[in-house]
Design a protein around this nucleic acid. Structure first.
Lengths: 130, 130
DNA sequence: GTTGTAGTTTACGTTAGCGTCAATGGTATA
DNA sequence: TATACCATTGACGCTAACGTAAACTACAAC
């Protein structure tokens, strides 16, 4: 259940230094074994997943930190919870926006593809005309 | 039609230095006016759009460069064109992958949202019970 | 002519995100 | 006991991606 830093690093295909760096940033708080070695619970792994995704998809460090904190607190206050839910709404909208942009990006590539394949067909046609 | 570096920078909300930097990298080749000032055509703007999107969505610098080059060459050779088309296919598949991951990310946030809103309802319910 | 604004190149400065020692300690296998 | 391998905490190094300043040119307004 509890993973070592090596296992975690391997799982996410990064160096152990990278994991430690995120801890330095306050994004992770792994528990320690009797011999002071980091042990990673499922929760920490979930946070790491969020971190890497966040990075890949252009969320700012600040945003990532906030999202990660969602995992850290059992927020008990109603106000806190309401804020959290609202924040989640917002993030989900942003994700929708990003998805839309990727779809657009694909469309444009498809257009390029269209032009190129057409050109290709023309060229090949000419070959047979002679 | 032709924009100055300032206009371009403003349009993309970056500094002029950033634009020049991308030129240093060989990603842009703006024409020059009679007084040696950069002029940006529609093509260059399209390339910039690609660059920023590529960055936002985790494409590597190498990949971005290759994608940008698609705009630069009127590839005439059949082999070249075929390679280009193939490369485009591949990129589009990668985009599909990224979309899928974002969808997954949203799902997970939705789960969290579910937990939080439920908790919130419980808390509010307790308030009225007393 | 000079004051102002926008452009140019050259070059050095800065920060995030790690890479890479160095020094040390625990555990286990020979 | 020694060799080996994993962990730990500094701490310094490095590169990408710009920021920023210096020194210059071009054009427009005063």
């Amino acid at each position: 259940m509890l993973k070592t830093i090596q296992e975690v690093a391997k799982q996410f295909n990064v160096s152990t230094r990278t994991i430690r760096y995120y801890e330095e940033l306050g994004l992770l708080n792994p528990n320690r074994s009797s011999t002071n070695q980091r042990t990673f619970s499922k929760k920490e792994l979930a946070k790491l997943k969020l971190i890497f995704r966040g990075k890949r998809y252009g969320f700012s460090p600040e945003e990532i930190k906030e999202m990660v904190l969602l995992f850290d607190y059992d927020r008990t206050g109603i106000q806190q919870l309401e804020r959290t839910v609202e924040y989640g709404e917002q993030k989900m909208q942003e994700i929708d926006g990003k998805i839309a942009e990727l779809v657009q990006m694909k469309k444009e590539l498809q257009q390029l593809q269209g032009i190129f394949t057409e050109k290709l067909a023309t060229l090949k046609g000419e070959m047979h005309d002679e």
